[in-house]
Design a protein around this nucleic acid. Structure first.
Lengths: 207, 207, 207, 207
DNA sequence: AATGAATGAGTGTTCATTCAT
DNA sequence: AATGAATGAACACTCATTCAT
């Protein structure tokens, strides 16, 4: 087999692992099942990855990389965040991202919930996203000649708990909400937008 | 041994299980370790509980029961939620609750993150809390002669994603935040209060 | 089950392990087979021993302990080693020991043959036995008013390579010799005695 | 690639296998590691050898062939074994041989220690060497007009257990002795020579 | 001659659960 | 109520061997 296939095989393994981790959690996942779903021999998984744990780490690294790309892209695409259209555009980028990546996000949240994790992937993502956000905000403030709120820590806390975690929760409970209340994806998304705008945007404006 | 001891033993098992589940997750937890931490023979655990899973269910039932009690208590104690003092009092009850119960809340969130959960304990808690909230709100509105916002679903979504999940996230990341940024419990709590008030209260007022 | 059974079970496991290790070597042995031969559940082996390796270590410890006992006993029982009868008596104790323990001795030699073993169980046994031997010899020499050969290192080398290792080899190849040449146990033993006496005793007397 | 390379590659594989077998035993060795050490692709090993076992057999065959050559050479080179010089010369040939070949000898002894081996490579080597020895001896006796000791079996046993196995043990424990007692190769060799001469030669002379 | 990819059958070890007392 | 012993079913990971090129 050539290199093309190798890359594809590795991707199939990662994809299967993502599916299964998100369904039953990392600890609940069996390598046998990943192999079966990926349509490869179990031993082949260990040809590409040192351990089950390394699969998870690879997925988390990809997530972080994807977030990074998404942030860059979103900053370029939404020059005016403060206008209603700009805000919605930014929101759409985010909501699309967490919807698409909700499988691995579920795993990330579940793993981050373990108390023996001194730090966690969610904290890492938090730092990444919030610092990018703050950078954007700073520029907006400067453009308008406003002074940027001094207490950075307070801002971080706000962004994390009222900005980031609602989106993560959206990734976690999106499907359950849609199923339980018979909501369409669009409907839930709109409700969530209204709520998020009122809350998070309001929080920013009240500074 | 009399009934007192039996109850205490059962409690010790539950407490140990809560500790360990929160540290390594349900699937990562070993009954051996729970027994060791509880200071009881492993087989005794199966005298009190049908399975490892029943321990989790018992813990989750307790959590729901505790939430119920907390809600009743909070409603009695904070007659005027809309005033600044009332809001802070209510917030304090909530924050104290999630802080105290953060171990089992972590487990609840982690388990709810699994995709094969059609519904989940977090959704259940959501329903419980949000309906209570809405009841309170309705009374407030009526008292003031205002008409209650018509779209209940929208309200639910807002309460869930901007009201409840930030608190759950607080339970999840409280320790990590304090450790990573060297914040005291009090400091984080105050920052969180400011952020939450601006965001969630604002969302309500903007209705 | 009571403590009696536990001890017996552990002994059955050790005995089965000794059999299998001696048949196919430590690395070639399967824990499954040990369990089957011992008539116990495989997991029970891990209830009594931390690992396959710990079983080996336990067997080696027992061997060393048994050697120690044998040495004490032999020293008490054979007060006059230099006489023909005394020498034969001592020889008999040794030959009986290595014959009885030949299974674990085979394993000990095989494991000691691995080059990554900085030291080895055979070297350990060597030290134990040779130092005891030398002690006995010293007494004999003193009794007879002779001066003890000064170069201890030379004596050690002699004892090890012309005293100990022929006995270990006897343990290794006894069965193969008997089978291949159709010798009875008694016959081989007598031949070996003649050879050993001529060689090893002569070496001592020539000092 | 031409034939020269093929031969060299095969030799590299055999050499790497010898190293690794001697370090961790045949069963403990992994074909992956042999490939890595030999600097060849793992599959290539199966191009040259049918199985891991065939590598071992090849190494053992080489050993036997080398022993054969060594015996012929030694017989030619040491016409007078009974003189002190001749004996030392013979000893030197032997000790050099077992020192050089100690890696594969270790493997041979370890494999021969397995009880399921009806016969074994060490027994095979024993037959080879001892019969050669006896042939030499017979000639010596005849030259001197002496009658050869009648009981061949007794002689075989003596040669095997007091002649051959000390040398094999030297191969096994040489490095461990040098390391443990801080002896130089030369020193150990000299001690061993003294001991061996006293014991084995004495045994012959006492016939 | 040489290799990266792939596989089947293991292999030591774990773990929730049960039994006998 | 409590325990030490025992078990079946996994489970992550390994390894000799083969395939396709």
């Amino acid at each position: 087999m050539n290199k093309r296939d190798a890359v594809e095989t590795k991707a199939r393994i990662l994809s299967a692992a993502e599916d299964i981790f998100s369904e039953v959690g990392f600890d609940g996942a069996r390598v046998d099942d990943i192999a079966k779903d990926a349509g490869v021999n179990k031993a082949l998984i260990y040809y590409y990855f040192k351990s089950k744990n390394e699969i998870l780490e690879t997925l988390f690294s990809s997530l972080i990389e994807d977030v990074r790309k998404m942030l860059i892209e979103s900053m370029e695409r939404t020059p005016d965040v403060c206008g209603d259209d700009g805000y919605r555009a930014l929101f759409d980028v985010y909501i699309r991202f967490v919807s698409q990546k909700r499988k691995i996000i579920r795993v990330a949240v579940a793993e981050s919930a373990k108390m023996d994790a001194t730090s966690s992937i969610v904290m890492e993502l938090g730092n990444l996203i919030i610092n990018a956000e703050i950078e954007v905000l700073r520029k907006e403030y400067e453009k308008k000649g406003l002074h940027f709120p001094k207490d950075k820590q307070e801002l971080l806390v706000m962004e994390f708990f009222t900005g980031l975690t609602p989106f993560l929760s959206y990734a976690l409970y999106k499907d359950q909400w849609e199923n339980q209340y018979g909501l369409s994806e669009k409907a839930l998304q709109d409700y969530f937008y209204q709520a998020f705008k009122k809350a998070h945007l309001a929080a920013h404006l009240s500074e």
